[in-house]
Every structure is written in C-alpha cells, then in structure tokens.
Design a protein around this nucleic acid. Structure first.
Lengths: 137, 137
DNA sequence: TGATTATCTGAAGACCCATTCATATGTACA
DNA sequence: TGTACATATGAATGGGTCTTCAGATAATCA
C-alpha cells in the first residue's frame, strides 16, 4: 500500500534513499538555485543580529548619523561602525558624507520589506500587551 | 546654524553623544522591545543557513520525511536531523510520526510569509534569466 | 526474539562572528 | 598649522554554530 519500501534515487551521481521519489524530484525542481539560496541566507544572516536589527529598524524612518545610531541602538560607536561596514558591503545601507559626519540610510527595498513585516508581526503578536518603551532613562 | 554642536543625552544612566536629540528619542520610542528584537533576530538566524533554508523551502509545499528532506536538500540525514531539531525547538516545524518515519511540516505562518517573500524575490530578481533547474542528475 | 531500518542524539573539531581596544584617517576650526 | 572631533579600521579574544562520526532509540519484519 505505502511506497515506503526502499527506493533509491541518483542525485549528483550519488545514490540516496528516498520514500516519495516523484515528490522529491518535483520539490528539487522548484528549489531555487544554490547561488540564490546562498544569497538569501546571507541577507537573513545580516538580520540575525540584535544589534544590526536595531540599526536597520532605526533607519526605517530615514537617515541617521553614526553617533545617533549608537545612541539609539545602545552600542559602542565602534561596534556600530563595524556593523555598518558589513551592511554597506552588502548594499543594504548607503552612506552620505557631510563634513566629518556620516549619514546612513536603508538602501535595499527587499530588506525594508522584511523589516516592515517583522516589526508588524512583533507588534501584532503583542497587540494585547500595551507595554511599550518602558525602561528608557 | 547646524545642530551638530556637542549635545548629550542620558540613556540608561549613561551619557552618550547625539546630534539630533529629539529624533533619537523618537526613534528609541518606536523601537520594539529588546525581548522582541531578540526573538526576531533568532527567527532570521534560523533562516540564515542555506541548509535550513533548503529544508524550509522544500516544506512550503507540504510535509516530507527526513530522508526525503535529506535527498531534496543534499545534506546528510544526520545534519538534517540536527537542523530539524533546532527548527522544532523554535516551533518553526512540527513532526508527525508514522511508524519509524517522521514527517515534518512548516508550522510557523510568519516564517512561511518570510520564505514566500524571499523566494518570490529571488524569482523576480532573476525573472529575465530563464535558467531554472539545470544541473540535476 | 533477533535483525534491519529510520531517526535521533552527544561529543568533538573546525570554522565563523561580534565585540573591544588601540590606532588611523580625514575633516573642521582656531 | 595644530588641535579637537567623527568615523573607520585592524588585530585579538571570546563565544557560538555547523558538520561529522559513532552510537542510541525505537519500530517493523522474519
């Protein structure tokens, strides 16, 4: 009745065990290219650090200079600079120089969507708990 | 003329340098709670590994057993099991046991949205390049 | 019951990453 | 020109994470 008898499929020249062979083939067909998956994982990785997340959420409303980003996110200016360097390398943020100041802004529309979605979700999840911005100062 | 003279704000009992004090205060007010940011970063972290990303994308269409997930994602069954354990601990996937088989499915609607968005974006980005699913077998 | 199969788990190793400290670069101002 | 300031950078450290290997658990079947 079931197709769970030992079935094998040759993938990448290597025989691997499968249960639902046609399903596996179909899913493999729909799977994005390895290169795209790697890039997507990288983007998610940039958002996987609370410090960077704070920086990016802060930038949702517009550009900010490094020291203000440090103040907003509660990190050292050095840590912020390192984080911004990484985000800049991935074209997630861009800089505008004005004298000795550096103003950063969100550059990647895709990342902005992800951030909006994430923030909206956390607000929705805690919609019944009106606690908001307490322990500051 | 400019407000870039040295201004200071007391945050968490610590004096920090800021440029646009009211803006900093406003952004800090809109900033999600630390706890929420940590949770959000964790979710993004779960999506930041190409292997896990493959597993989750595979599960977008419905449940799959461990060995099929290994075949689809091109990882060892042990690695897949470890990854699923992590995803299970975070309630991102859930298991259905049938005999000695274990069928996993996507459980978190939020993660599903993020995945859909990410996949749609990669497809859209490469919309002009009809190369799709080539090197299999 | 004993053997086989599917999945799970723990420990170990290698690798990656975030922060800090010290210092560098470059701008503004006197 | 020299000092103060804003940001950037490099090296080092400490902690975290992914994979593999070996073995454990549990279910099916003869």
């Amino acid at each position: 009745m079931n197709g769970s008898s030992d079935n094998h499929l040759t993938i990448d020249g290597c025989a691997v065990r499968v249960v639902d062979a046609p399903r596996v083939a179909a899913v493999r067909d729909r799977m994005p290219a390895a290169e795209d998956l790697r890039g997507t994982a990288e983007v998610f990785g940039l958002l996987s650090d609370p410090g960077r997340l704070r920086l990016l959420v802060a930038l949702l409303d517009g550009e900010l200079c490094v020291c203000d980003l440090a103040a907003v996110s509660g990190q050292s200016e050095s840590a912020v600079s390192h984080a911004l360097r990484l985000l800049r390398a991935h074209r997630v943020v861009s800089v505008r120089r004005a004298g000795r100041m550096a103003y950063y802004r969100l550059e990647d529309a895709h990342v902005r969507m992800l951030l909006d979605l994430a923030v909206a979700h956390t607000e929705h999840t805690h919609a019944l708990r009106p606690e908001h911005g307490e322990e500051s100062r």
